[in-house]
Design a protein around this nucleic acid. Structure first.
Lengths: 191, 191
DNA sequence: CCCATATGAGACTATTTTGTATCATTCAAG
DNA sequence: CTTGAATGATACAAAATAGTCTCATATGGG
């Protein structure tokens, strides 16, 4: 699916606006793209098509980023670290898609998203087998945790409390070793 | 602000529906509450008022839950743990408010929300001074991390991958000590 | 310069949703 | 039993938005 410059422009604008306000109108999207509203409808048949194009774009970008990162690693653990930090850079802008309605009717999008989740789960499981991640933690839990931390880091970056580079550093460290001081025992029981 | 049973019904229904679909219509909310649409408008002047009432409710519930949790703790660290696990139970249902537009015009809501964030930050900072959380981590980062992990845990619970009790257990463990195997990482000291 | 194509602007329609108003009904208190 | 208050249902007006269409304009290639 080749994407013309105009389409690219609209997609980028839509991503910017919708990540802030998932209910933004086509008019607002067109304005953000500095393009006539009619042009948006010329390039994308309707709102659903635009959202689907954004979803495909998010999947493709994530695939590429993850693939490039994984290619530079020799172990699953290292691959996981690279993928997580790489994805951090572009995850926040696509999160709104998770709650966009009509997308779950598109078979292709659904299967691609599930494949990505499975690839991440496989990577985590491999890291667990390598011994870097505790075997007694449910893989799904670790995946959820990664998701949450990427989201949190993205929000923190957006708010300006930390920079991107610092967040990438802190993210892996916090995820792997936690936030506790190393000389303290962690209790989980109530007194 | 006393809340009549009818208002309570509508608020609960709105919370259920809106947490799934932030763009749900007043009609859908009324149907979920098994109440006439006109009654919704009788109880809440308009959509914005309903959302603001939900926000006030979320703030009050969080305050109460956090206060009860904190009252049972003797140290800031323990208070933080109790608050985090307690809030986990009800955070997911109010998350949609974060992206609801017109709320940021209500001064009272904004200040209350900022106060809650500051209280959490104070708790984290106190835990850092107590020595349970690393001093070299930015407090704001730890706060963001907590937020992200609560979100992730809520999502995992909703998806059914873990139960609430297991999530509360895993959440604190993962946050404090991370997911890495203790015998693997280089400069990590075992308890 | 000429032409094909894409665009911007805006009119227009259809649909959805919000918010108001009306009226008959229910139901509980007196 | 009577009355008043709240409700459900529905009709209605007003606003917002999606999607279509037309036309004038611009622009880049031949």
């Amino acid at each position: 699916m080749p994407v013309t410059p105009t389409q690219e422009r609209i997609l980028e604008a839509a991503q910017r606006i919708l990540s802030r306000d998932p209910g933004a109108t086509m008019d607002e999207i067109a304005a953000e793209a500095r393009v006539g509203r009619a042009t948006v409808f010329r390039q994308f048949k309707n709102r659903d098509e635009l959202l689907k194009a954004l979803a495909h774009r998010a999947i493709a970008v994530t695939d590429q980023v993850a693939q490039e990162a994984a290619a530079r690693a020799t172990t699953a653990t290292e691959a996981l670290r690279l993928v997580v930090t790489a994805v951090l850079g572009e995850s926040e802008e696509y999160r709104f898609l998770g709650r966009a309605a009509g997308l779950y009717e598109d078979e292709e999008i659904v299967t691609a998203y599930e494949r990505q989740l499975k690839e991440l789960a496989d990577l985590v499981a491999a890291a667990q087998r390598e011994g870097s991640i505790r075997m007694d933690l449910p893989t799904a839990w670790v995946v959820a945790l990664i998701d949450g931390q990427i989201w949190a880091a993205g929000a923190a970056i957006a708010k300006g409390t930390v920079g991107l580079l610092q967040a990438q550093e802190l993210l892996w460290q916090s995820m792997m070793k936690g936030v506790s001081s190393t000389n303290m025992e962690v209790h989980s029981h109530v007194e």
